[in-house]
Amino acid sequence: MRWGVTLGVTLLVLLIILFELPALRQKPLRDKIAFFSLLLCGWVLAQFDLPNMAGPVTWLNELFKPWGNLMKK
């Protein structure tokens, strides 16, 4: 059902890797780990139906609810 998205995101990730790889080769291991784990995070996140999922904005909304209600007219 969301195969198109998965495919597109994978392609995008591959493109980013391809673009960065030459420069990344000379960098320390730490940089490589950070680079790949960030991409992995993104790839995993992209598999979800993000707009309709509870996320940081929802949590912050909950957290600030008492104050947010102040702004209601």
Binding site: L12, V13, I16, D31, F35, L38, L39, G42
Partner: peptide, 8 residues
């Protein structure tokens, strides 16, 4: 190196 992954 992390600019593009962050952008993603």
């Amino acid at each position: 190196p992390i600019v593009l992954p962050l952008g993603f």
